[in-house]
Structures are given as C-alpha cells and as structure tokens.
C-alpha cells in the first residue's frame, strides 16, 4: 500500500518565490480600491499642494518643482502600507500554517508581498511623475540621474515595505496593522518634503534633519533639480539599508515566534 504514496519533490530554485510573487500580483490587481487609492491619492495631494498651498508657500509658482520628491515618497508610503495588511491577513488566517508545514524557505511568502509592493509603487511613482510633468514640473535631470532617482526611490520603497511587512507580522489583526502603519505615513510631513527644514521650530528641525525621509528627499531633489546633495545620498542609502536589515531580522524573529499561534 505504501508504494502509492509519494514524497514532495524538491522544488527548483525560486519556484516558491515566483509562485508567491504571482500570488501577490494577483492580490494587488484585484484589490481595485487599494490600487486606486495608491495612485489617485498621491495625484490629488500633488494637485492640492501645487494649486492650493503652492502659491502661498512659494509665490513664484515654482513650488511644484520643490514638492514632487515629497509626493513620490508619500505615495510610496501609502502603497507600501497595504503590505502590512496583506501580511497580517496571511498570519491571522490559517494559510500561513499550511505554507509553514511545507518544505519552503520561510521568507518566500514575504518575498512575494515585497516584490509586488515594489512593482505597484514604482508604477504609482511613474504616474505621479507623469502628472507632475503635466502640471508644470520641469526637472533638469540627465538620463543617468533619472536612473539614480528610480534606484533611490526603489530602495526607499523596499525599506518601507520590509518595515510594513514586519509591522504586519507584529500586529495582532489586519486592522491593527493598518493603524500602526498610519503613524509611519506621518513622517514625510516632518521632513524637507513640503517646506524647507529651516522654517520649522528648532526642536522640530532636529527631528526633521535626523530622520530617514529628509536625506532621501534631498537626494531625489538634487538629482532632479540639481540642488546640492551633499552627504544626503550616502545617508539615504545607509538609512534604507539599515531599515531593511532591522526589519528583516525583526520579521524573521516574529515569523518564527508566531508559528502555530493565532
């Protein structure tokens, strides 16, 4: 009788990752509301900052050139925050235990969510830039600098997505995950995204200058508009890699600890 039963074959490399990426893509495409939010909201914000606040902040009409990098990061934050909800949903339904009792690399499910988030947000970034160009955004970047912009935006998306994935693992319910994520989305406002740091009160300046968003913004702005970058570029890279490292270690620990618990 035992000859009829079979053992799971060993998977070829990256089959699991590819399967989970495909799954997360299907999730992204089918969650129409979230997809619309991820694209429409940043566009609305940009139009609001350009046409409503823009002239008050910078009467010369050049505010759109200043604000685009901030909108891009804000948009990436919104898009990535849904990763926390997806991960939390996986953890709180039984599906994660099914995956965990299969011979799969433990991070493969998360890789799926992260890659889908990266693709989703790079697409949204493209839409934001396209709309920005329509409303008068005039960047002076060379093709190589554009490449740099997408590289640093991609790195930032990865960092914040990994962080949101870890938050999704830590949260007890998808609703809680969405709540924690909200705090992170506030961070761009306390940076050089919308107004120069020098215009803030002293204590807030210190926060704004020493948080990860500011160097990322200054790097993107420097590449697009040729404003001085200084040490922002390497600070941005160090911040992003640091966030990824911490999130991956924290996430892996949570993933192990939560096995078999719901």
């Amino acid at each position: 009788m035992t000859t009829l039963v079979q053992t799971r074959p060993r998977l070829s490399p990256f089959t699991a990752e590819a399967t989970f990426i495909n799954r997360s893509f299907l999730h992204s495409v089918r969650d129409v509301e979230a997809l619309l939010m991820a694209v429409v909201l940043p566009v609305m914000l940009m139009l609001m900052f350009t046409f409503i606040f823009g002239n008050a902040i910078d009467p010369s009409g050049g505010y759109v050139d200043y604000v685009v990098p901030g909108i891009i990061l804000l948009c990436a934050g919104f898009g990535a925050s849904s990763t926390a909800i997806s991960v939390s949903r996986d953890m709180t339904t039984g599906i994660i235990d099914r995956f965990r009792t299969m011979p799969l690399r433990s991070g493969a499910v998360l890789t799926g969510h992260v890659v889908a988030s990266l693709a989703r947000n790079l697409f949204a970034t493209g839409v934001v830039i396209a709309v920005a160009l329509l409303v008068g955004f005039r960047p002076v970047a060379s093709p190589l600098e554009w490449l740099g912009v997408f590289a640093i935006v991609g790195l930032y998306i990865l960092a914040i997505t990994y962080l949101f994935a870890a938050i999704g693992l830590a949260a007890s319910t998808p609703d809680a995950a969405s709540g924690y994520g909200f705090i992170l989305l506030f961070l761009p406002y306390i940076s050089s995204a919308f107004v120069p740091v020098e215009t803030m009160p002293g204590w807030l300046q210190w926060i704004a200058e020493n948080q990860p968003i500011t160097p990322v913004i200054e790097t993107i702005r420097g590449l697009l508009m040729h404003t001085p970058i200084g040490d922002s570029a390497w600070l941005a890279v160090v911040w992003c890699l640091g966030i990824i490292a911490v999130s991956v270690v924290w996430g892996a620990w949570l993933f192990r600890r939560k096995a078999g618990r719901r």
């Binding site: 339904t93 039984g94 599906i95 099914r98 009792t101 719901r262």
Partner: peptide, 9 residues
C-alpha cells in the same frame, strides 16, 4: 505531510 488546519487555509 500536509496540514488542513482549523480555520480554512
């Protein structure tokens, strides 16, 4: 092995 847990996975 395979597992079918309590909540539909």
């Amino acid at each position: 092995i395979s597992l079918t847990g309590q909540s539909a996975a």
